[in-house]
Design a protein around this nucleic acid. Sequence first.
DNA 1: AAAGATTGAATAATCAATCTTT
DNA 2: AAAGATTGATTATTCAATCTTT
Lengths: 162, 162
Amino acid sequence: VVTVPLDDERLTTVGLFFEAHAGLSRVSGRELESQTGLSVQWFEVLLRLVRSPGKRLRMSDLAAQTTLSASGLTRAVDRMEAARLVRREACPTDRRSTYAVLSDEGEASILRAIPVHVEHISTVLGSVFDDDELEVFTELVRRLRDVTNPLAAQASTPEALA
Amino acid sequence: VVTVPLDDERLTTVGLFFEAHAGLSRVSGRELESQTGLSVQWFEVLLRLVRSPGKRLRMSDLAAQTTLSASGLTRAVDRMEAARLVRREACPTDRRSTYAVLSDEGEASILRAIPVHVEHISTVLGSVFDDDELEVFTELVRRLRDVTNPLAAQASTPEALA
DNA sequence: AAAGATTGAATAATCAATCTTT
DNA sequence: AAAGATTGATTATTCAATCTTT
């Protein structure tokens, strides 16, 4: 008798979710990298910065909004600074903090990359969902995000950007 | 005039999806690791094996079914073999192939871990979705998975398991 | 003491090259 | 030549420890 649920429904949901992520991540990462020279990670960072007031964000806030840890972000910003996409600036009001600031090159780069990426994911999502389904999917994913990743959720609320 | 869509709806969908994945992965990874000593990756591998006929899978098939690349899987199986959770066995019909085979310890380990993990993700999913929503979500995610990760999709069809 | 950021050391992931078998 | 698997070398990620500022 099988007493362990090898095929529990929620286990399946999570498994599919992880597989979908791995697939989408691989596919859109390849596309993005070949078309724009940006990795998914750099794209994420630059996108956060270009959307932020003053095109800057403190290192710790940027880490909270991406998939990177604090030290992971430090290293990533090192490399992006070497590539002239961002620069570091001291925070005048709290000398513990450092701002990552989008450079002109970084801005040009992300503004070039966004349409390419949007075009690609539109094709993918368009081939999977119709408009209503996309709306439902987005809403359900948003709720899952709010619960599992409250830091990211907080970063995108209007108050947090004030 | 802003000509680049910084807030395209599908870009938001994908962003939320990635944030949700990062959150769920972190949260359930921590829980799984602390409760069972298995990383998400090892859990995935063991789960695939325990579900497979003969509790074994060729290295290349196992790689296709997980988030690991071929060489990534080789390294992971090295470590899991050292931990006595799996062993390698030669394939009698094709000497290029190697089977990764679940050991008794590996089986005990995954059978212990599954209920813990199911319990945890049930709590999370249960706090986000009601039953109908979970069903809708699962179906939409499945379709996204089928398109973006056809290898994983293929692995779970009945024919592929025959 | 705690927050913010960084670093060193260890661990893991990836790419191309390699080896064997088909 | 191509498939299957592995290895070496490089790169990236993580953890704990460190340093400065609050």
